[in-house]
Computed example of a mutant assay.
Amino acid sequence: MEIFNTVAALKSFVSEAHADGKTIGFVPTMGALHRGHISLIERAVAECDLCVASVFVNPTQFNDSRDLACYPRTPEADAAMLSAAGCHAVFMPTVEEVYPEPDTRTFDLGSVAEVMEGKHRPGHFNGVAQVVSKLFEMVEPHKAYFGEKDFQQIAVIRSMVRLLSLPVEIVACPIIREEDGLALSSRNARLSKEERTIAPAISRILKQSRELRPAHTPEMVIQWVTRELSALPHLRVEYFEIVDGHTLQSIRNWEDTDYAVGCITVFCGEVRLIDNIKYED
């Protein structure tokens, strides 16, 4: 596996691959890799001639400097995991390499970027669009792979791709969970031992809420989930919304959409965790 630290070296590798007619699958990450990331790598390896990953903690998408400072960084372990999974190249740049000058671009990402995470983390999705558009320009991938744990982020990136007319297919991949149901996240490493035993309640209660659908409105389900989680120690629900999975707009009735998705953010202690669930008929 090749490791690149500069844009020039990465572009040279990519240009050669394109000249040879090879398809490129790209997995952008912020590092601290886990099995969820590796599932994306494995799919890219299976579907494309070359798999390229990036490991870069992007400062422009953090609206909390403490969160940025605390974000786990494990570059050596990340490189070993990527190599073992069959990744062909990884881009591990410095902030100065990605942003030689401040990125002042603003993106009109539409309503999908204004709700939920967009409402609670102002500027977050613009920062995501900045870095992902830069990475797409560097790698020129045919396909890019993202995990559905970040359900809203996928919708935002698809909006950005349409906005910029980029020739890349966005591939959404299923959430990978621990045996106890907790969605895999790099942030899980920050949970204390006690918090780690409580955090799986998020997925458990979301799963139980599916059973309420036949006799309860979306608002009633939202209230039940919020009440159940709030009753547990260390957990604080920031938001839980049931939305149309295409538009990400809240629904009042199940009949309002054929694709209802519940999206939640919960603080477990000081660690911010996100998850989602699809309400299927």
Rank of each mutant, 00 (worst) to 15 (best):
D49M: 07
D49N: 14
L50G: 08
A53H: 10
S54P: 14
V55P: 04
V57Q: 05
V57F: 05
T60Y: 12
T60V: 11
Q61H: 09
F62T: 03
S65A: 09
R66I: 12
L68Y: 10
P72L: 00
R73H: 14
T74P: 11
A77M: 09
A80Y: 09
A80C: 09
A84S: 14
A84V: 15
C87Q: 11
H88D: 15
H88A: 02
H88Y: 13
V90P: 06
T94Y: 15
T94H: 15
E97T: 06
V98I: 15
V98P: 04
P100R: 07
T104W: 04
R105A: 05
R105H: 12
T106A: 00
D108F: 01
G110P: 13
S111C: 10
V112I: 12
V112R: 05
E114N: 04
E114T: 01
V115H: 06
M116D: 01
M116R: 03
M116E: 01
E117N: 03
H120M: 01
F125L: 08
G127M: 12
V128F: 13
A129T: 14
V132K: 07
V132H: 10
S133R: 15
S133P: 11
F136M: 03
M138R: 02
H142N: 13
H142V: 09
F146D: 11
F146N: 12
E148T: 14
E148V: 10
E148L: 13
D150H: 09
V156K: 00
R158W: 06
R158G: 07
M160D: 07
S165H: 13
L166Y: 11
P167S: 01
V168G: 00
I170Y: 07
I170W: 10
V171R: 15
V171P: 10
A172I: 09
C173A: 02
C173L: 02
I176F: 02
I176K: 06
R177M: 00
E179W: 00
D180N: 15
G181A: 02
A183Q: 01
L184Q: 06
L184I: 04
